[in-house]
Design a protein around this nucleic acid. Structure first.
Lengths: 244, 244
DNA sequence: CGGACGGTTGACCGCTGTCAAATATTGTGG
DNA sequence: CCACAATATTTGACAGCGGTCAACCGTCCG
């Protein structure tokens, strides 16, 4: 039976006790409300590296909260090239761009072993009508995503390669910090190619950037493990660097 | 009194009889539901060209539906440069990126004389709890905006100047068509500078593009009035053009 | 062991930004 | 309505950032 496997999983993992609930949909909900939310979360499944959470074209019926690990979302354009639209960390929601449609417009693939909570959207909609705080939080999450993408747009439109890369690292740093992890050193779970794809740069350019920023003693990288050596310098480069 | 001016305006302009209600929030609502929506729309005001609907930093409490005309939204980065985040046509909603905050993150400025309907967000939230179709429509609008920005990202990341410009024109064309206007010829309400700013190109590049695409007989432009001469060619350039 | 994949480095060049200047258009005050 | 300033647009010359091509190395894994 479907329900039994569900409940067996639920007994282990619940929103109420989830370590990242302050970063996820339950933020600002009362305990009783979180319980209602928890009741509609269908599966809490594990994805191994390179496994898909969903494919573009799959029927949309759920959004997904990341519990651990990291994912990338991307589309494939008509000429077959991949375009990464985002990297997603624990507490973040993926699938929000599918609500206006019946199908997911993008792929979601695990960058490492990850745990994901799947939330049927019709149930979430109706629950959010009874729980104003939940409705507000969904609006906020979506609004925040719109805003972040606008910031990314500014990045791609107005900044050169060094600034893009610096901004990317600082953005990851800030997101790790929010999650209680070190903002000074962390593991990149994506390839250089992924980074370049996301930032609109060639792989070779990313590789050269890594080398250069390391020589400038802004960062130190060993494979995928990055340390931010000069935080002030890096954020200046990312933000307001005047490349005249 | 505030209410009297409101009601005097309301007697003239109502969602129920608005010509673009099929493109706006009321789509899919029953007449009685539209009436409830109409009742919370505070002001239906006119903006003259270059007037602001809101400034970045203004207290957020409302989103805004465009009734006629067109707006641009933009942010100002720390070094003072403007970054246009969107051009907005009748039926579209602006201010959605402010919901996650207490202030608008961007400016909204009229590109021409425009009419705008202002909708207090807290009232909209609570009304949408009673009208499932309204809640769904808000979700859809926000989801659609997320998706459109992801497509724009792909544009900026993967396409060259010609492809960007062609895609921009085709996008406008499609949006005019949805509104029952000609998709073959229309007035651009933004400057070349605005287009370049939005697409991540220098003004000079945009100007050269206009000249080149005109020579290639894909478009014809007289000042801001554009005609799409070769629709197939332009959409090929915009979409799947293989620039190898 | 060998192929696939990820990453790095060098050489080259083309697209597009920058600078400059001329012209056209719009807006404003008298 | 005109004069004039401010803004918008176009065109040319030039150079630099970053893409492309190519070669090489290291690691992982069947």
């Amino acid at each position: 039976m479907k329900l039994s496997s569900n409940s067996s999983l639920r007994s282990e993992i619940k929103c109420q006790t989830c370590s990242i609930r302050r970063l996820c949909l339950p933020v600002m909900l009362a305990d009783s409300e979180i319980e209602h939310l928890d009741n509609i979360v269908q599966r809490k499944k594990v994805l191994k590296k390179n496994e898909f959470l969903f494919h573009a074209g799959d029927q949309f019926d759920s959004i997904h909260a990341i519990r651990s690990g990291s994912l990338k979302t991307y589309t494939i354009s008509t000429d077959g090239t991949e375009q990464i639209t985002g990297f997603h960390l624990p507490g973040e929601i993926v699938g929000l761009n599918a609500i206006s449609s019946t199908q997911y417009p993008s792929f979601a693939k695990a960058l490492e072993t990850s745990m994901v909570c799947t939330i049927p959207f019709d149930k979430l909609e109706s629950l959010s009508r009874d729980i104003p705080g939940l409705q507000k939080q969904i609006f906020k999450v979506m609004s925040g995503e719109i805003r972040e993408e606008q910031e990314l747009m500014m990045l791609l439109n107005k900044k050169n390669a060094d600034e893009r890369f610096a901004a990317f690292i600082m953005n990851l740093s800030a997101r790790f910090k929010r999650r209680g992890l070190s903002d000074k050193e962390f593991q990149l779970t994506m390839t250089r190619g992924d980074i370049g794809n996301y930032l609109g740069l060639a792989v070779e350019t990313v590789s050269r950037l890594v080398t250069r920023l390391q020589k400038q003693e802004l960062i130190a990288i060993q494979d995928r493990y990055i340390q931010i050596v000069n935080q002030v310098g890096l954020s200046q480069l990312a933000g307001t660097a005047c490349h005249i």
